[in-house]
Amino acid sequence: MKPLPFRYMKPQTLDEALEALGSGEDAKVLAGGQSLVPLLNMHLARPALLIDVNALEGLSTIEPSDAGLRLGTLVRHQTLLTSSEVRRAVPLLAEAAALIGHEAIRARGTVGGSIAHADPAAELPMVAIAKRATIGIRSASGSRRVPAEEFFIGYLMTSLGPDEIVEDVLFPMAPSPSGSAVEEFSERHGDFALVAVAAELSLGEDGRVARAGVAVAGAGPAPAAAREVEAALIGQASPEGVRATAKAVAADIAPEDDLHASASYRKHLAEILAARALERAWQRAKAASEAR
């Protein structure tokens, strides 16, 4: 299991990278490599050119602003875990990052890589959807921002064009008081989730849920926004009420049977995990509200 030959380049500027990417050659972007290199080793990916973006300046930044927390594409998963900035601004990200693989994976894996690879069971795409994040995309001809929900379109499929690169991901900050939680079910520690749920709740002046973001991973060809659940959450004012909305998750997801689980088990897990995530998010939001 060794990669087939390819050409490698390590551009020093984004423009140089984008130019190569737009050259029409069968090129792939190499960031952390934790998803791409296994595919290369198994001969499932056979690019002619590999563009290593690790040397590009300015893509590893973590920038809080009024619009939210902007993560450069090269921010490593391990950094999400250790950054106090991330923990303060988007605690959901820090909690989710702890569930990504093992430290050796987190040390190399990048935010942009995980987003662009779009594994439906991966944590960051799920959080991006729950947070209504937007993906900043660049190509030689310009840049655009795409809401996460429009970005992920199927198994490993995104709206990213062959000449485009993920430049950053912008996670809007939740209006406080808010609370969030991730629940994940995997057979072994560090595995890809069978199903995972990310939830964030913000409370209004009246102590009721005023805003909710819920997403499910591993229960369909792409991470799914749980819109029915979100709608049901608005106005909830008790842990029981919040939990009960999890039932609606079945309407938001379309899993299929596969080797690891049946579609119905995945639906079942989604409901259980949603209830647990929502209850924890609720408790955290409540605590945040009481602390004010």
Binding site: M42, E187, R188, H189, G190, D191, F192, L259, H260
Partner: peptide
């Protein structure tokens, strides 16, 4: 965890450590 699955045509379906799970230390 472990079971190697084949389809009706004899294709093995989980020939990687991602899909064929072996015991890890945490469990």
């Amino acid at each position: 965890y472990e079971a190697l699955r084949f389809d009706a045509q004899g294709q093995p379906l989980n020939t990687s450590f991602m899909d064929y799970l072996v015991p890890g230390s945490a469990e």
